[in-house]
Design a protein around this nucleic acid. Structure first.
Lengths: 136, 136
DNA sequence: TCATGCATTAGTATAGTACTAACGATATTA
DNA sequence: TAATATCGTTAGTACTATACTAATGCATGA
Protein backbone atom coordinates (compact mmCIF):
# COMPACT_ATOMS: atom_id res chain seq x y z
CA UNK A 1 0.00 0.00 0.00
CA UNK A 2 1.04 3.41 0.14
CA UNK A 3 3.69 4.37 2.66
CA UNK A 4 5.38 7.50 3.87
CA UNK A 5 8.69 8.15 5.53
CA UNK A 6 6.91 7.18 8.72
CA UNK A 7 5.84 3.95 7.17
CA UNK A 8 2.14 4.00 7.90
CA UNK A 9 -0.60 2.97 5.48
CA UNK A 10 -3.88 4.79 4.99
CA UNK A 11 -5.81 2.71 7.50
CA UNK A 12 -2.99 2.76 10.00
CA UNK A 13 -3.08 6.53 9.64
CA UNK A 14 -6.86 6.55 10.19
CA UNK A 15 -6.45 4.49 13.31
CA UNK A 16 -3.64 6.64 14.71
CA UNK A 17 -5.64 9.81 14.18
CA UNK A 18 -8.70 8.25 15.74
CA UNK A 19 -6.70 7.29 18.81
CA UNK A 20 -5.22 10.77 18.98
CA UNK A 21 -8.52 12.58 18.64
CA UNK A 22 -10.91 10.32 20.52
CA UNK A 23 -8.85 9.16 23.46
CA UNK A 24 -9.49 11.12 26.63
CA UNK A 25 -6.71 10.61 29.16
CA UNK A 26 -8.45 8.27 31.55
CA UNK A 27 -10.60 6.77 28.80
CA UNK A 28 -8.37 5.13 26.22
CA UNK A 29 -10.27 3.52 23.37
CA UNK A 30 -11.31 -0.10 23.27
CA UNK A 31 -11.16 -2.37 20.28
CA UNK A 32 -14.89 -2.46 19.58
CA UNK A 33 -15.06 1.30 19.71
CA UNK A 34 -12.20 1.64 17.24
CA UNK A 35 -13.74 -0.97 14.94
CA UNK A 36 -17.18 0.59 14.88
CA UNK A 37 -15.82 4.10 14.39
CA UNK A 38 -13.69 2.87 11.49
CA UNK A 39 -16.66 0.92 10.10
CA UNK A 40 -14.82 -2.38 10.18
CA UNK A 41 -15.16 -5.57 12.21
CA UNK A 42 -13.09 -6.07 15.37
CA UNK A 43 -10.69 -8.62 13.83
CA UNK A 44 -9.89 -6.16 11.03
CA UNK A 45 -9.24 -3.44 13.56
CA UNK A 46 -7.10 -5.78 15.61
CA UNK A 47 -5.03 -6.47 12.53
CA UNK A 48 -4.34 -2.77 12.08
CA UNK A 49 -3.57 -2.37 15.78
CA UNK A 50 -1.18 -5.30 15.56
CA UNK A 51 0.77 -3.59 12.80
CA UNK A 52 0.83 -0.31 14.70
CA UNK A 53 2.12 -2.15 17.77
CA UNK A 54 4.87 -3.75 15.71
CA UNK A 55 5.88 -0.33 14.48
CA UNK A 56 5.91 1.01 18.02
CA UNK A 57 3.09 3.53 17.65
CA UNK A 58 0.54 1.85 19.87
CA UNK A 59 0.40 -0.22 23.04
CA UNK A 60 -2.40 -2.19 24.68
CA UNK A 61 -3.04 -3.06 28.29
CA UNK A 62 -6.14 -4.85 29.54
CA UNK A 63 -8.01 -4.08 26.36
CA UNK A 64 -7.14 -0.42 26.59
CA UNK A 65 -5.47 0.75 23.41
CA UNK A 66 -3.35 3.85 23.45
CA UNK A 67 -0.63 5.66 21.58
CA UNK A 68 2.98 5.38 22.63
CA UNK A 69 5.03 8.57 22.82
CA UNK A 70 6.25 7.82 19.33
CA UNK A 71 2.69 7.31 18.10
CA UNK A 72 1.61 10.51 19.78
CA UNK A 73 4.37 12.44 18.07
CA UNK A 74 3.53 10.92 14.69
CA UNK A 75 -0.17 11.71 15.11
CA UNK A 76 0.62 15.30 15.97
CA UNK A 77 2.80 15.56 12.92
CA UNK A 78 0.14 14.08 10.65
CA UNK A 79 -2.48 16.42 12.12
CA UNK A 80 -0.25 19.42 11.50
CA UNK A 81 0.12 18.40 7.86
CA UNK A 82 -3.60 17.67 7.65
CA UNK A 83 -4.62 21.07 8.98
CA UNK A 84 -2.12 22.84 6.79
CA UNK A 85 -3.50 21.34 3.61
CA UNK A 86 -7.06 21.59 4.82
CA UNK A 87 -6.43 25.30 5.27
CA UNK A 88 -4.87 25.53 1.82
CA UNK A 89 -7.89 23.88 0.22
CA UNK A 90 -10.31 26.08 2.14
CA UNK A 91 -8.41 29.24 1.29
CA UNK A 92 -8.65 28.08 -2.32
CA UNK A 93 -12.42 27.82 -2.16
CA UNK A 94 -12.87 24.10 -1.59
CA UNK A 95 -15.80 23.44 0.79
CA UNK A 96 -14.71 22.51 4.30
CA UNK A 97 -15.83 18.89 4.31
CA UNK A 98 -14.18 18.18 0.95
CA UNK A 99 -11.05 19.97 2.08
CA UNK A 100 -10.93 17.72 5.10
CA UNK A 101 -11.41 14.55 3.07
CA UNK A 102 -8.80 15.57 0.52
CA UNK A 103 -6.30 16.46 3.24
CA UNK A 104 -6.89 13.08 4.86
CA UNK A 105 -5.79 11.32 1.70
CA UNK A 106 -2.39 12.95 1.68
CA UNK A 107 -1.51 14.10 5.21
CA UNK A 108 0.38 10.91 6.06
CA UNK A 109 2.38 11.04 2.83
CA UNK A 110 3.81 14.51 3.12
CA UNK A 111 7.00 15.35 4.92
CA UNK A 112 6.26 17.58 7.89
CA UNK A 113 9.13 19.95 7.21
CA UNK A 114 7.80 20.60 3.75
CA UNK A 115 4.31 21.09 5.17
CA UNK A 116 5.68 23.70 7.60
CA UNK A 117 7.05 25.60 4.63
CA UNK A 118 3.70 25.41 2.87
CA UNK A 119 2.04 26.68 6.05
CA UNK A 120 4.22 29.76 5.96
CA UNK A 121 3.45 30.24 2.26
CA UNK A 122 -0.28 30.31 2.94
CA UNK A 123 0.11 33.09 5.51
CA UNK A 124 0.62 31.00 8.61
CA UNK A 125 -2.97 30.54 9.80
CA UNK A 126 -3.04 29.65 13.49
CA UNK A 127 -5.92 27.23 13.20
CA UNK A 128 -7.55 24.98 10.64
CA UNK A 129 -11.06 25.61 9.26
CA UNK A 130 -12.51 23.63 12.18
CA UNK A 131 -10.76 25.98 14.58
CA UNK A 132 -8.16 23.48 15.78
CA UNK A 133 -4.60 24.78 16.26
CA UNK A 134 -2.26 23.83 13.45
CA UNK A 135 0.97 23.87 15.36
CA UNK A 136 0.52 21.57 18.34
CA UNK B 1 -2.96 0.24 -2.31
CA UNK B 2 -4.01 3.58 -2.28
CA UNK B 3 -6.60 4.64 -4.83
CA UNK B 4 -8.11 7.84 -6.13
CA UNK B 5 -11.35 8.69 -7.80
CA UNK B 6 -9.63 7.58 -10.96
CA UNK B 7 -8.75 4.33 -9.35
CA UNK B 8 -5.06 4.12 -10.09
CA UNK B 9 -2.42 2.95 -7.66
CA UNK B 10 0.97 4.57 -7.17
CA UNK B 11 2.79 2.34 -9.63
CA UNK B 12 -0.02 2.53 -12.15
CA UNK B 13 0.31 6.30 -11.87
CA UNK B 14 4.07 6.08 -12.39
CA UNK B 15 3.55 4.00 -15.49
CA UNK B 16 0.88 6.31 -16.92
CA UNK B 17 3.07 9.36 -16.43
CA UNK B 18 6.03 7.58 -17.96
CA UNK B 19 3.99 6.72 -21.03
CA UNK B 20 2.73 10.27 -21.24
CA UNK B 21 6.13 11.89 -20.92
CA UNK B 22 8.39 9.45 -22.75
CA UNK B 23 6.27 8.40 -25.69
CA UNK B 24 7.04 10.27 -28.86
CA UNK B 25 4.25 9.88 -31.41
CA UNK B 26 5.90 7.42 -33.77
CA UNK B 27 7.90 5.81 -30.97
CA UNK B 28 5.56 4.36 -28.40
CA UNK B 29 7.33 2.66 -25.51
CA UNK B 30 8.13 -1.01 -25.35
CA UNK B 31 7.84 -3.22 -22.32
CA UNK B 32 11.56 -3.54 -21.65
CA UNK B 33 11.96 0.20 -21.80
CA UNK B 34 9.12 0.74 -19.35
CA UNK B 35 10.48 -1.92 -17.02
CA UNK B 36 14.02 -0.58 -16.97
CA UNK B 37 12.87 3.01 -16.52
CA UNK B 38 10.67 1.95 -13.61
CA UNK B 39 13.51 -0.16 -12.19
CA UNK B 40 11.47 -3.34 -12.22
CA UNK B 41 11.60 -6.57 -14.22
CA UNK B 42 9.50 -6.98 -17.39
CA UNK B 43 6.95 -9.35 -15.81
CA UNK B 44 6.33 -6.82 -13.04
CA UNK B 45 5.84 -4.07 -15.60
CA UNK B 46 3.57 -6.30 -17.63
CA UNK B 47 1.43 -6.82 -14.57
CA UNK B 48 0.98 -3.08 -14.15
CA UNK B 49 0.24 -2.69 -17.87
CA UNK B 50 -2.33 -5.47 -17.60
CA UNK B 51 -4.18 -3.61 -14.88
CA UNK B 52 -4.02 -0.36 -16.82
CA UNK B 53 -5.42 -2.15 -19.88
CA UNK B 54 -8.28 -3.56 -17.83
CA UNK B 55 -9.06 -0.06 -16.63
CA UNK B 56 -9.00 1.25 -20.19
CA UNK B 57 -6.02 3.59 -19.84
CA UNK B 58 -3.59 1.72 -22.03
CA UNK B 59 -3.58 -0.39 -25.17
CA UNK B 60 -0.90 -2.56 -26.75
CA UNK B 61 -0.33 -3.53 -30.37
CA UNK B 62 2.68 -5.50 -31.56
CA UNK B 63 4.58 -4.81 -28.40
CA UNK B 64 3.93 -1.10 -28.68
CA UNK B 65 2.34 0.21 -25.53
CA UNK B 66 0.42 3.44 -25.62
CA UNK B 67 -2.18 5.45 -23.78
CA UNK B 68 -5.79 5.36 -24.85
CA UNK B 69 -7.64 8.67 -25.09
CA UNK B 70 -8.92 8.05 -21.59
CA UNK B 71 -5.39 7.33 -20.36
CA UNK B 72 -4.12 10.44 -22.07
CA UNK B 73 -6.75 12.56 -20.39
CA UNK B 74 -6.01 11.03 -17.01
CA UNK B 75 -2.27 11.58 -17.42
CA UNK B 76 -2.83 15.21 -18.34
CA UNK B 77 -5.00 15.64 -15.29
CA UNK B 78 -2.44 14.03 -13.00
CA UNK B 79 0.33 16.18 -14.50
CA UNK B 80 -1.70 19.32 -13.92
CA UNK B 81 -2.14 18.37 -10.28
CA UNK B 82 1.53 17.41 -10.06
CA UNK B 83 2.75 20.71 -11.43
CA UNK B 84 0.37 22.68 -9.26
CA UNK B 85 1.66 21.10 -6.06
CA UNK B 86 5.22 21.13 -7.26
CA UNK B 87 4.83 24.87 -7.77
CA UNK B 88 3.29 25.23 -4.32
CA UNK B 89 6.20 23.42 -2.70
CA UNK B 90 8.75 25.43 -4.66
CA UNK B 91 7.06 28.70 -3.83
CA UNK B 92 7.23 27.60 -0.20
CA UNK B 93 10.97 27.08 -0.36
CA UNK B 94 11.19 23.34 -0.89
CA UNK B 95 14.06 22.46 -3.25
CA UNK B 96 12.93 21.55 -6.76
CA UNK B 97 13.79 17.85 -6.71
CA UNK B 98 12.11 17.32 -3.36
CA UNK B 99 9.11 19.29 -4.50
CA UNK B 100 8.83 17.01 -7.50
CA UNK B 101 9.11 13.83 -5.43
CA UNK B 102 6.58 15.07 -2.88
CA UNK B 103 4.14 16.08 -5.62
CA UNK B 104 4.50 12.65 -7.19
CA UNK B 105 3.30 11.00 -4.01
CA UNK B 106 0.01 12.85 -4.02
CA UNK B 107 -0.79 13.99 -7.56
CA UNK B 108 -2.89 10.92 -8.37
CA UNK B 109 -4.87 11.23 -5.14
CA UNK B 110 -6.08 14.78 -5.48
CA UNK B 111 -9.20 15.81 -7.29
CA UNK B 112 -8.32 17.95 -10.29
CA UNK B 113 -11.03 20.50 -9.65
CA UNK B 114 -9.66 21.09 -6.20
CA UNK B 115 -6.15 21.35 -7.63
CA UNK B 116 -7.35 24.02 -10.08
CA UNK B 117 -8.60 26.02 -7.13
CA UNK B 118 -5.27 25.65 -5.38
CA UNK B 119 -3.53 26.78 -8.56
CA UNK B 120 -5.51 29.99 -8.51
CA UNK B 121 -4.71 30.46 -4.81
CA UNK B 122 -0.98 30.29 -5.49
CA UNK B 123 -1.18 33.06 -8.09
CA UNK B 124 -1.83 30.97 -11.16
CA UNK B 125 1.71 30.25 -12.34
CA UNK B 126 1.73 29.32 -16.04
CA UNK B 127 4.45 26.73 -15.70
CA UNK B 128 5.94 24.41 -13.12
CA UNK B 129 9.47 24.82 -11.74
CA UNK B 130 10.80 22.74 -14.64
CA UNK B 131 9.19 25.15 -17.08
CA UNK B 132 6.46 22.80 -18.25
CA UNK B 133 2.99 24.33 -18.75
CA UNK B 134 0.59 23.57 -15.92
CA UNK B 135 -2.64 23.79 -17.84
CA UNK B 136 -2.35 21.45 -20.79
C1' DT C 1 20.02 -22.15 -38.73
C1' DC C 2 20.89 -20.50 -34.49
C1' DA C 3 21.51 -17.20 -31.00
C1' DT C 4 19.78 -13.13 -29.13
C1' DG C 5 16.26 -10.30 -27.53
C1' DC C 6 11.72 -9.42 -26.25
C1' DA C 7 6.94 -10.62 -24.66
C1' DT C 8 4.52 -13.57 -22.04
C1' DT C 9 3.02 -17.17 -18.66
C1' DA C 10 3.26 -19.56 -14.40
C1' DG C 11 4.36 -19.70 -9.96
C1' DT C 12 6.01 -17.60 -5.47
C1' DA C 13 6.10 -14.01 -1.96
C1' DT C 14 4.87 -10.08 0.96
C1' DA C 15 1.97 -6.21 2.72
C1' DG C 16 -2.33 -4.20 3.32
C1' DT C 17 -7.19 -4.55 3.84
C1' DA C 18 -11.40 -6.85 5.32
C1' DC C 19 -14.38 -10.77 6.13
C1' DT C 20 -16.59 -14.99 8.79
C1' DA C 21 -16.49 -18.55 12.19
C1' DA C 22 -15.23 -20.00 16.40
C1' DC C 23 -13.24 -19.85 21.01
C1' DG C 24 -12.26 -18.19 25.70
C1' DA C 25 -12.85 -15.06 29.40
C1' DT C 26 -15.42 -11.86 31.84
C1' DA C 27 -19.40 -9.56 33.29
C1' DT C 28 -24.33 -8.86 33.70
C1' DT C 29 -28.64 -10.30 34.93
C1' DA C 30 -32.59 -13.09 35.49
C1' DT D 1 -26.01 -19.71 40.44
C1' DA D 2 -26.75 -20.41 35.73
C1' DA D 3 -27.65 -18.40 31.36
C1' DT D 4 -26.55 -14.79 28.38
C1' DA D 5 -24.15 -11.18 26.42
C1' DT D 6 -20.00 -8.80 25.44
C1' DC D 7 -15.41 -8.41 24.24
C1' DG D 8 -10.79 -9.77 22.72
C1' DT D 9 -8.55 -12.97 20.10
C1' DT D 10 -7.24 -16.67 16.76
C1' DA D 11 -7.64 -19.06 12.51
C1' DG D 12 -8.72 -19.18 8.03
C1' DT D 13 -10.24 -17.04 3.52
C1' DA D 14 -9.96 -13.59 -0.04
C1' DC D 15 -8.53 -9.97 -3.00
C1' DT D 16 -5.43 -6.08 -4.61
C1' DA D 17 -1.00 -4.21 -5.32
C1' DT D 18 3.67 -5.00 -5.79
C1' DA D 19 7.79 -7.54 -7.36
C1' DC D 20 10.50 -11.62 -8.10
C1' DT D 21 12.42 -16.02 -10.75
C1' DA D 22 12.09 -19.59 -14.08
C1' DA D 23 10.59 -21.05 -18.21
C1' DT D 24 8.35 -20.76 -22.72
C1' DG D 25 7.45 -18.93 -27.20
C1' DC D 26 8.30 -15.95 -31.07
C1' DA D 27 10.75 -13.24 -34.28
C1' DT D 28 14.69 -11.25 -36.29
C1' DG D 29 19.26 -10.65 -37.62
C1' DA D 30 23.97 -12.71 -38.07
Amino acid sequence: MTKSTNNVSKRERDCLILLKEESRGDFPMRLHEIASTMHIKPPSALNIIRRLKTKGFVEAQDGMIKLTDLGDRLSKSILMVHRTFESLFCQSGVPESRACREAGEIDFLINSENAMKVLKRIDNPASCPHGKPIKA
